[in-house]
Design a protein around this nucleic acid. Sequence first.
RNA 1: CGGGAUGUGGCUCAGCUGGCUAGAGCGCUGCGUUCGGGACGCAGAAGUCGGAGGUUCGAAUCCUCUCAUCCCGACCA
Length: 578
Amino acid sequence: MRWSQTFIPTLKEAPKDAEAVSHQLMLRGGFIQPLSSGLYIYLPLGNKVLDKVSRVIREVLGEYGAIELSMPALQPKSIWERSGRWETMQDIMMKIRDREEKEFILGPTHEEIITDLVARRVFSYRQLPLNFYQIQTKFRDELRPRFGLVRAKEFIMKDGYSFDLSPAGAEISYQKMYEAYFKIFHRCGMPVEAVQADTGAMGDGGKSHEFIVLTPIGEDMVVKCFSCGYSANLELAERKPKGVPEKQEGDKSHELVHTPNARTIEEVSAFFNAQVWKFIKTLIYIADENEKLAVLIRGDYEVNEIKLKRYLKCQQLRMATPGEIEKATGASVGFAGPVQLNRACRLIADLSLSTLSQAITGANKTDHHYQHVNPGRDFEMNEMADIGTAMEGDACVRCGSALNLKRGIEVGHVFFLGEKYTRKLDAKVVMQDGNESHLVMGCYGIGVSRMLSAIVESNHDGQGIIWPVSVSPFEVIITPVDFSDERTRVESLRIYEALKIQNVDILLDDRDERPGFKFKDADLIGIPIKVIIGKKGLDKNIVEILLRKDGTKTEVPLDKAVQTILETKRLCLEKLNG
RNA sequence: CGGGAUGUGGCUCAGCUGGCUAGAGCGCUGCGUUCGGGACGCAGAAGUCGGAGGUUCGAAUCCUCUCAUCCCGACCA
């Protein structure tokens, strides 16, 4: 491709709306153009990268026996009612009606559709296992789109769905995809890690891993232990709380203190002039609308509702309303405490209470707190569990080393779904023994458009993007120093044509611009292999080959240029595959 | 949906204690000089000052409402 014949609107300065580096660089490099919040035009360059990423995905999934199909983005509401997800996913679905007032949604994902397909067209165990995937536009009514392509209302996703005869078979499918994902992300030049994750509205709390690229703009928090390798999403990361920072004083018995208008931890700690870890926070929850719980946690920790939900094995969990709290504790909001509360509801204590004594708690009496409260002595602690959100410095449950918290972008997610959808949508086959059996499912997503952001976040420098050659919009760029110079033009075109024949995806900057201008543009859009052809070199019968990544420069004789470029490309690709 | 910020040529921004034909840099068009890391000169085109209402002799500037965008939070595959 010649630069003058494509459309690459570069910008010297980044539009002020872009904060994230990846967003800025993709805007400046002419990869995307915003249409509205969370909606982007993929310009020719951005579109090419999407194609390249999709190509890598297709290649790898092909190796693993997955088959591609395409499904409607527009889906009838009824199928979502059948699966029960109309209820659970309503808020994020884009809803529309046709002229007959029939209700539709723009699909946020396709589990229902694929399962229905399998239910209708697959009848025998002989046809299984099956592993389908699609690369398509999906829609979510995001509360807040962010960081360019990281979180958009309309985005491109690869979604895969496996169907097996047994949990054991599904386990194998899951493992295969897990492996394939590493291959895909590595080939795209992304340092990715798999972390244990929550299944959210997708599954039933079964096995699930997220693939995360660590970056400061990530939306997900990952808990990582560098010594034993444990890593999990903060949403479910296990941890051993750190002990309290100071020695506990004496063994005074608990004592009622008048604390007018001190409700929040800040207000109460100011009142007592005590550190937050001296407090026991007492939170009242309602599980599945029928059980009232008091959850106790040390003042410096937060309750992790996902962990709590898993511990309770309940479907729904919510904080109690002020009215319910008053009813349970006999005090207005802000003065709940564990002492004598077990008469009103079940007490669940977080592990962080285990090293605490002489604590401060609400007294279940408006405007009063207790001090010198000892867990176990002043209230029973029959149930202790790890239900707090992990913090930097907590100990790893496996090896005891300190845990680290990192931000990352979720680029992939694999779920073991079991029979959740196949039962609801009645996808079953006749087995060898003649009996019918529901299929066991897994699903596997990759945020394709989001991957562009993630790749740029982990592959850039002060000058611009540095695309891994596997996904770069062009593999090689030829920058003639002065294209109007006869000899330069002839040699540039000769090499350009020769490389094209060799299937090199190549961009020739044939613009009538000053060299510095062209060099800057080339670096900004991030083409990994740069070829510079100019009079100076031609006088010595050489051209220069530079690597965008580290700037290494090789001068090669004219007649070796094509061969050397091919070799350079091969080496770059090899590194990504290895 | 709560908190914060910002809206002035395509992009970045100045002007904002009210005062004449609204400015700069980059970009764009033409001409000339240049040409190995975002050149220079001259000439030019381009702005409903986000929108509506109000105060005033007079509003980009003050007030009210509204819309849009971004950031933090809530939520989320």
